[in-house]
Design a protein around this nucleic acid. Structure first.
Lengths: 143, 143
DNA sequence: CGGATATCAATCGCGCACGATATAATCGCG
DNA sequence: CGCGATTATATCGTGCGCGATTGATATCCG
């Protein structure tokens, strides 16, 4: 009558996302970073600086109530700076510090380690990524 | 040099899992349930009663530090009971109450609503589920 | 120009989620 | 039998993650 969690697509995503975080943990712990913090830094390393809090939120699909405390922690450990936009004082711009840029090199090995842990070819991973992303976008579209 | 979040398989899983939770929210809110609580109830509805806390944890891949407070909340709203196993008093058995069993009927429409929201055929979803589950298991295997 | 409206970040409360640790019960082995 | 090791759950501290709300700034429009 009722489906066991193992049979549900939602649980597959839920448990896979957690397993992925666990895979990152031993790589990020020595850097003093959490997984969401690493995602924010990845956004900063790869994008146009300095984005606003809202822009990061749209990219990572996170609310300001999640980002603001996280960004304060990244600022507290010296990896970013937060400054009010002079033109529009409602917005806060997020800048990498020198330490924040240096962290990119210190974390350069992380993607390779994760790739290896998946035991999959890059092509297979990209294909799966696109399927998962497509499902995510369909779920959000109707929202 | 650095990959944007959108290009990462980890972010695809991360954001898809969150989007899935958001899709469940309007369905579970009226029932007074959170998404992890719904997963625990799904395990109880579909399995052999009464499982121990540890058995639920293995099925959902959650620690006792997560489950214990969650189960206490389910007990507080009257959907389950927690009793010490008489044979092995270290273990706690989780029983559905009548209200907990009745909730299964009240939530019976949920899977169909989610399926519709995905806009995918059941076969395509099952195939994707198996791929995601296989990735999860590879990530956990090396752990 | 000025008040209504909209936008942006921050705050608050709650519920996960986990690592580390604690506590209690059971088991293994001499 | 008894004591050390193992196992099961619970507790504690920290960091997300979000809905609801707030406060401050900017925009729109009469």
């Amino acid at each position: 009558m009722s489906m066991p969690p193992d049979a549900m697509i939602c649980f597959a995503l839920y448990s896979a996302a957690h397993a992925m975080q666990q895979a990152y943990r031993p790589l990020l712990d020595p850097l003093g970073l959490t997984y969401p913090q690493y995602l924010v830094l990845s956004a900063l390393w790869s994008g146009q600086e300095p984005p606003t809090v809202g822009a990061i939120g749209r990219q990572l699909q996170l609310e300001s109530s999640t980002l603001t405390p996280l960004l304060k922690r990244l600022e507290a450990i010296g990896l970013i700076r937060r400054t009010r936009d002079t033109a529009d004082e409602r917005q806060v711009r997020v800048h990498l510090t020198d330490d924040g840029r240096a962290m990119q090199a210190r974390a350069a090995h992380v993607p390779d380690c994760i790739l290896e842990r998946t035991g999959m070819t890059p092509q297979a991973l990209l294909a799966l990524r696109d399927q998962v992303t497509a499902l995510r976008d369909r779920l959000r579209a109707t929202a």
